[in-house]
Amino acid sequence: MINVRTLEPGTRVALADGSTVEIVSNPKDGIWVFARYLTAPHDASLVGTEDMVFAPDIVEMREHA
């Protein structure tokens, strides 16, 4: 389980739906991060967009940008 409070901007993480996102900012509430989609196999239109990502959806660390 990843402690989302420690995720710094620029960190890349994998989501449960197979997407990869890069952290843009972190309010450090332990529940949400703001992130930009790098890949989105289920919906290509999301790539490049920013969204709030819910902590349980973050499943794996990727390499740092």
Binding site: S25, P27, D29, I31, W32
Partner: peptide, 9 residues
């Protein structure tokens, strides 16, 4: 940045 409810998020 945001106000997050700790109950259901």
């Amino acid at each position: 940045t945001v106000f997050t409810c700790p109950y259901h998020g």
